[in-house]
Design a protein around this nucleic acid. Structure first.
Length: 259
DNA sequence: ATGGTAGACCTTCTA
């Protein structure tokens, strides 16, 4: 089973681009981030006609995540536990009823810029909630894939020019420590399982010719439970998607698990 | 030192 994750930067503005890629890659499961619309505005029809079941956790203008699957989706959780007052739509989880079920979460971590503001504190609090929830999920001992835009550059090697990010929320010691802490619960980074080479980035800013100069960063990850890691058979980072017409600033990452 | 781009949408915020 192929599980894709992609921050699309508005599913409606990006619809043709997203569908063109879906028709090419045909993942069985697709996690979308930054759909930037409420549930009712999600363009369900073209995905349903391609055989996807759809779950959406949307929000007006900002954020928003979706989970699409050619297998039935059950046990759906909208929103990350731990703060009932949090109104930002950044987490959607469901059980993919494949031959061997896989629990999949679509995650859009807060950006957190600028550092030193409430936004950065919100990012760290959100990370702590994700840590707590992931810890609970791991106790289930299921196949689990936590997929999405983590908005963290874990290591200098994950940026073309790490020095350029030293004041950015994505590269702060606290952000990087939170990511390491999550991994240390016993998750496996599919990028490392697949042995992808350095320079395999997933995001290039629209500004300042970042793509043309390959000033990229790796911030999109699929973190796997031990049971999912045992079934891991490959990872593809679709760099070419950054060169499509009307590209997202992120590219899709696809993880393959054996049946 | 600054600006550069993209999207939602009403005017500025987010990234």
């Amino acid at each position: 089973m192929r599980i894709a994750t992609w921050n699309v930067n508005s599913v409606n503005a990006r619809l043709e681009t997203v569908l063109a890629w879906v028709d090419q890659a045909q993942p069985e499961v697709l996690c979308l981030q930054e759909i930037k619309c409420v549930d009712e505005k999600f363009p369900s029809e073209p995905f349903e006609s391609r055989g996807y079941n759809i779950e959406v956790h949307g929000q007006k203008s900002y954020n928003g995540v979706a989970l699409l699957s050619k297998f039935p989706i059950t046990d759906v959780r909208r929103g990350l536990p731990g703060d009932d007052t949090d109104e930002q739509a950044r987490y959607l989880e469901g059980l993919i009823e494949a031959e061997t079920p896989v629990r999949v979460a679509a995650i859009y971590l807060p950006n957190g810029n600028p550092v030193g503001t409430e936004k950065f504190l919100y990012k760290l609090r959100w990370f702590q909630r994700l840590h707590n929830h992931a810890s609970e999920l791991l106790r289930l001992e299921e196949r689990l894939a936590l997929c999405g835009d983590y908005n963290v550059i874990p290591e200098p090697v994950d940026a073309k020019n790490a020095a350029a990010w030293k004041d950015d929320a994505l590269f702060q010691p606290e952000s990087r420590a939170a990511f390491r802490g999550l991994i240390s619960l016993g998750l496996y980074d599919s990028h490392e399982l697949g042995g992808e080479p350095d320079g395999t980035y997933t995001f290039w800013d629209y500004q300042a010719g970042a793509w043309q100069r390959d000033h990229g960063i790796r911030i999109d990850f699929a973190l796997l439970s031990p049971q999912a890691a045992d079934a891991f058979s490959g990872i593809e980072t679709w760099r070419d998607a950054r060169d499509m017409d009307k590209p997202s600033d992120h590219v899709p990452v696809v993880v393959t698990l054996t049946p």
